[in-house]
Write a protein that binds this DNA or RNA. Structure first.
Lengths: 335, 335
DNA sequence: ATTTGTTACTTAAACGTTTAAGTAATATAT
DNA sequence: ATATATTACTTAAACGTTTAAGTAACAAAT
């Protein structure tokens, strides 16, 4: 990499001090430097193709104008979509985004946070993984601004942007019941993460306690999705009282589950009704238009950026706890 | 954001100079500092939870250990998958990734490059957009290391990692012909980008010139995919000699096209044979298992990182031009 | 007893900015 | 004519590191 042009180079060529060049190039208002000298400096800067060194600016100002984005997996379309919106919104605010994938592992997310803190990010947007409360507590202690997205910890005071997961799940199950479904199974992730717990809670609330039996809810491990979901579905279908409807708690679970239904040649909605949480391009090709819970991703991501930028600009103890509403998109999969 | 702990703070507390602290904390080998003082410094560093300021290190060393990734759209699963692999591979090499989406627009990619150069990225991995040769030429002039991925410019000497697009397309069409298809349409993007041109070339090569007619190839604009693909398909199907097979040049084109075939209730493979370039989770739900061209994404992305890191570490004029082979995965959509 | 060497540090400069404080020259006010 | 302001700069310190060069204390070699 060629040595980059610095203020010093311009100063030397213009025969003025570095400070003068800085004043000319960094202030919009002409701050005390004569038009003559200003023009000369600007001309030379252009000639030499001067680009300010953001690293030096950062060191001097203590701000990197960079935000760290930590998601479970950037290759998951749900997070990739969020990442794209965050990227655009951040750019509008003069920020760059550095991202990292935690794979839902607290250890990875911890490493990532340290790594990005060394990089002096000004703040974080985090989809936190399970058992990462301590990491967040550390951030709070160090007064590093951050916003949680998608999930949060109800017993911790933080900024967050999420949806009303409980209501969304409740509405979905209500829909199934209205359509006469009586034994509704749910496939969720085996995690204490709040968004998942809320979805489960919404499910349980909608099902009256009598009919609810523990066997109807199956919780699978993140890392064993591919094997566990088919097994869970089989168990739900093969018991004495087979389910007549199934609710998938995320799009990955939905995709995996629907593939299995296809393999077993179980027809939606005739053999079983289905509702999925979240969208997926894949669902467009499912033979039966799915009923699904649509999260307002653009809003979610934009709000996250805006809250974070605000916290960075003027740190306050006022926390933003934003809960948006999801929408149940009606297809034909639960009629 | 709380003031971070610096070497100065440790030095003050330990009663030594900043340099001593730096020597202790940055050298693995104990370089001349007594065990006593070393231990004391390390202890204090731990106590104060010292984290080195990467920005200061970067300024001093001239290396940011950051790479800029410019893709068309991070929310496109093709690029999101690449991004994830690049992230992991970069981390292994001690690098962070900053990403940006160009939306296939040279203007955006130009802005992005400037923006990331200001951030002092050590190098770039770029899926270049059309007409961005000048930007790359500038990078070359400034001796900024970069590697192109997915596409490249054949008349420009750069590092690149790509697949043999022509052969992949040729093989796909050959397959269709072997299966007795005689009028094979292709839907591609209207762009001079090399990967697309190669795919078109492979298509044209495989079709003997007599049977080839210009009407069989339809090129649509990036920004008008949603409207143009259905129109193109209709034209291919409604002429005097309707096509009996169709080749989609990317997964986005494939998804859009297949949706339209569904809407028109045209059955694959009975009414029409189909081959798609690239994979998609969506294809798993298409009623007919698709025959598609599978790119070795992990290999592609890892090689890109490795080439880049090598160029950063020891800049040379030896360029790496890597072309991998794609694989035609046989489904039932072209039999 | 003097030189030479080694140990264990410290000093100071550098990376590229910003910005408060300083200064010399000229203009304006009294 | 002197004091005060204004203009148009420059100097120097700071941000947090690294690292070459310097130094003081002591040990070993002659």
């Amino acid at each position: 990499m060629q040595k980059r042009v610095s203020l010093k180079d311009i100063a030397k060529k213009a025969g003025v001090s570095i400070a003068t060049v800085s004043y000319v190039l960094s202030k919009q208002k002409n701050s005390g430097v004569s038009a003559e000298v200003s023009d000369k400096i600007r001309k030379i800067a252009k000639e030499l193709n001067y680009r300010p060194n953001q690293i030096a600016k950062s060191l001097q100002s203590g701000k990197s104008h960079t935000i760290g984005l930590i998601v479970a997996d950037i290759s998951n379309p749900f997070f990739a979509q969020i990442a794209r919106i965050i990227e655009d919104e951040a750019k509008k605010n003069g920020y760059t985004v550095i991202f990292g994938s935690s794979d839902e592992k607290a250890s990875k997310s911890g490493d990532l946070i340290k790594f990005l803190l060394n990089r002096q990010v000004d703040g974080f947007i985090i989809a936190p993984s399970e058992a990462s409360e301590n990491q967040l507590r550390n951030l709070k202690e160090q007064k590093v601004p951050f916003v949680l997205i998608d999930r949060y910890f109800p017993n911790m005071e933080t900024n967050f942007v999420t949806i009303n997961n409980q209501k969304a799940a409740f509405d979905a199950i209500k829909r199934l019941k209205e359509n006469g479904k009586e034994r509704i199974g749910m496939i969720a992730y085996d995690t204490q993460l709040h968004h998942m717990q809320e979805r489960v809670k919404g499910y349980k609330d909608a099902i009256t306690s009598e009919e609810y039996e523990d066997q109807l809810l199956h919780e699978v491990e993140f890392s064993k999705t591919k094997e566990s979901v088919p097994k869970a579905i089989d168990e739900l279908l093969n018991g004495a009282h087979p389910i007549d409807a199934i609710f998938f708690a995320t799009n990955t679970l939905g995709i995996t589950g629907l593939k299995h239904l296809n393999e077993r040649n179980i027809k939606v909605p005739d053999d079983i009704a289905v509702i999925v949480f979240d969208e997926s391009e894949a669902f467009d090709f499912f033979y039966c238009p799915l009923t699904y819970v649509k999260q307002p991703l653009p809003d979610l991501a934009k709000k996250a950026v805006n809250v974070l930028v605000e916290q960075i600009d003027k740190p306050s103890h006022k926390l933003s706890k934003i809960q948006l509403e999801a929408e149940l998109i009606i297809g034909d999969s639960c009629s």
